[in-house]
Design a protein around this nucleic acid. Structure first.
Length: 465
RNA sequence: GGGACCAUAGGGUAGCUUGGUCGAUCCUUUGGGCUUUGGGAGCCUGAGACUCCGGUUCAAAUCCGGGUGGUCCCA
C-alpha cells in the first residue's frame, strides 16, 4: 500500500462499496455491498443511541431566517451552504438552506416543545444526509459535498453540569461503537479556533490513517446556553422561574466507514470487522463433475446450520475456478472462508481460513461448528482491534523539541507535546510547522514546547485530512 | 485562497510532440459455445471508447478557448 490515496480510491470501486463516478463533484452512489456495511453500522449505532435517546427525523430544508439567527454558527458555515432559491420557475420569497447540520432546524422546534423542567432532559438523534459545498478537493467518504450518513444527537438539560455529563455520555457511546468496529482513536479537546461554531468546547475523536494523516471521525460539543438564548428555548423550573437550558450535540458520519476500510484493509483488499461484514462466512465448494452433488449438499447443510445460528453465510458456487473465488472473497473482506471438497468430505472435516491473518485451520465436523465460528469471529475482531491500536500507539511520539516535529509528523506519526494552551502560541506552532494542533489530550506541567512558558496540556499535533 | 497536471470501451492503457497510416492498440471486463474446477483456466465466436460545447482546418482523438469532472502540491 505505497500510495494510500490510490489504494483507497481503487478499493472503494473494486470491492463495490461506492461508485464515485456520479457526475456531481463530491457525491457518490452507495452500491449494494457498501450499503450493507453502512446498514449494519447504523444498526449497531442505533442500538447504542436508542438506550438513551429518541430517534426523530427533521426536514432537509431550513428557512434562511432561522439559519441566520446564530451569528457565530452561521459564520462557520456560510461558505458551505447550498440554497434552494426556486420552486419550479418561481423564485421563492425566502431562500431555503439545505442543512449543513441541523441545529438551526431542530432548535426552533425545541423552543416549542420545551416548557417545563419536566420536559428535560430531552435527547434526540437522527441519521440523515447533509450537504456542504466543499471548496477543497473532495475525496469519497472522507471529504464529500453530500454527507449521506450523518448521525447527529441533540440534547437539552436543566444545568450546565448535566450538559457536561452528557458530553461524557456521548463520548462513551462513541467509544463503544469504535470498539465494536475495532477502530482506534484519540480523544482531545479541540483548540478554541477549531471548535464547533457556537460551542463552548468540542471534544473530537481522531484516527490515524496509513498515509500518516489523522481523520476526524466524531465530535462531541457542549453548546452551553448559547443556542438556547438565540432560539429562545426556555423552561419553567420547579420554583416557577423561566430559564434557558443547556445543550449538547454530537455526531459522526461516513468517515467512520472510511476509517474502518482504511485502517483494516490491506494489499489484498478489504478486511471487515465481522460485525459489519455483509457476508461473514463464505463457503467455497470444490466441485468435481462426479462429486458435485455430495459437496453441494454438505455445503448447504453447513450453511443452514450457521444461518440458523444468526451468521451471514454465502455459498460461492459460481462456475469459476476456486482461485478466483479466493481472490474475490479476500477483496471483499469476508472474515472467514470455508473450503469444502471431496477430500474433506471423505475425512469429515473442513478447512477454515481467516481473512485477517490468512491462517488455515482444519475443523472436524464432529465438533460444534456454531460455537467454533462464534469464537473465531470474536478472535478476529480482537486481533483487528489490537493490531490497529498497536499501530496507532506506536505512531504517537512524545517530543520536546519543536524543530524535530515536522520530520516526525511527516513520517506518519502524531506528535505529543507540552503546550501552554495559549491561542497565539498555538497558532504560532501551526504556522511554523505547517501542521495542525488536534487538541489537548490531558493536563500536565513543565515547559511549553513553543513559548517556553509553563505548560498546561499534553497536546497532539498531526497532519489532518 | 493560490498553483500544477489529467480526461480514449465498465476499469487500466497505446496513439497526441510533427493533424491524414485510426476502419483506434494491448490488458482486464462482458454475451454465447465447448472442455474444466484443491490459489486468478483454455480454446472458438461476439460486444464495448476518443468528456461536453465552441473554434481553427480540405481534414481533429491529436491544435486553440470555455464548461464539467478528477488528481496532486502549497497556504
Amino acid at each position: 500500500m505505497e500510495n494510500f490515496s490510490q489504494w483507497f480510491h481503487d478499493i472503494l470501486e473494486k470491492a463495490e462499496i461506492i461508485d464515485s463516478r456520479y457526475p456531481i463533484k463530491g457525491m457518490s452512489v452507495w452500491l449494494p455491498k457498501g450499503f450493507k456495511i453502512r446498514k449494519y453500522f447504523l444498526e449497531e449505532l442505533g442500538k447504542l443511541m436508542d438506550q438513551d435517546h429518541d430517534e426523530v427525523l427533521f426536514p432537509l430544508l431550513i428557512p434562511e431566517n432561522e439559519l441566520a439567527k446564530e451569528a457565530i454558527h452561521v459564520k462557520g458555515f456560510e461558505e458551505e451552504v447550498y440554497w434552494v432559491t426556486h420552486g419550479g420557475v418561481k423564485e421563492l420569497n425566502e431562500k431555503l438552506a439545505i442543512r449543513p447540520t441541523s441545529e438551526t432546524a431542530i432548535y426552533p422546534m425545541f423552543s416549542l416543545w420545551i416548557r417545563s423542567h419536566i420536559d428535560l432532559p430531552k435527547k434526540v438523534y437522527q441519521s440523515v444526509n447533509t450537504m456542504r459545498y466543499e471548496t477543497k478537493h473532495t475525496r469519497p467518504l472522507i471529504r464529500v459535498r453530500e454527507i449521506t450518513t450523518f448521525t447527529e444527537s441533540h440534547t437539552v438539560h436543566e444545568t450546565y453540569e448535566e450538559a457536561i455529563k452528557q458530553v461524557e455520555n456521548g463520548i462513551d457511546i462513541y467509544k463503544k461503537i469504535f470498539n465494536l468496529l475495532a477502530i482506534p482513536y484519540t480523544i482531545v479537546s479541540r483548540p478554541s479556533w477549531d471548535k464547533f461554531p457556537g460551542a463552548d468546547y468540542t471534544f473530537a475523536f481522531d484516527s490515524l490513517i496509513k498515509d500518516g494523516k489523522t481523520l476526524q471521525i466524531a465530535t462531541v460539543h457542549n453548546l452551553g446556553d448559547t443556542f438556547a438564548k438565540t432560539f429562545d428555548i426556555k423552561y419553567e423550573d420547579s420554583n416557577g422561574n423561566h430559564k434557558h437550558p443547556y445543550q449538547t450535540c454530537y455526531g459522526l458520519s461516513d468517515r467512520v466507514i472510511a476509517s474502518l476500510i482504511a485502517i483494516h484493509g490491506d494489499d489484498k483488499g478489504l478486511v471487515l470487522p465481522p460485525l459489519v461484514a455483509p457476508v461473514q462466512i463464505t463457503i467455497i465448494p470444490i466441485i468435481f463433475k462426479d462429486k458435485s452433488d455430495e459437496v453441494l449438499s454438505k455445503a448447504n447443510e453447513i450453511k443452514n446450520t450457521l444461518e440458523n445460528a444468526g451468521f451471514r453465510v454465502n455459498i460461492d458456487d459460481r462456475g469459476i475456478r476456486p482461485g478466483k473465488k479466493y481472490h474475490e472473497n479476500e477483496l471483499n473482506g469476508i472474515p472467514l472462508r470455508i473450503d469444502l471438497g471431496p477430500r474433506d468430505l471423505k475425512n469429515n472435516k473442513i478447512d477454515i481460513i481467516r481473512r485477517d491473518t490468512a491462517e488455515k485451520k482444519e475443523f472436524s465436523l464432529d465438533g460444534d461448528i456454531v460455537e467454533y465460528i462464534n469464537n473465531y469471529l470474536s478472535e478476529i475482531t480482537n486481533n483487528l482491534k489490537q493490531k490497529a491500536w498497536n499501530y496507532m500507539n506506536e505512531h504517537i511520539i512524545e517530543l520536546n523539541d519543536l524543530s524535530k516535529i515536522e520530520e516526525i509528523v511527516l513520517n506518519g506519526n502524531i506528535a505529543s507535546v507540552k503546550w501552554c494552551g495559549n491561542d497565539d502560541c498555538g497558532k504560532g506552532i501551526e504556522e511554523k510547522t505547517n501542521l495542525d494542533i488536534l487538541g489537548n489530550l490531558s493536563e500536565t506541567n513543565g515547559e511549553c514546547i513553543h513559548c517556553g512558558k509553563s505548560a498546561k496540556y499534553n497536546c497532539l499535533i498531526s497532519k489532518t485530512y
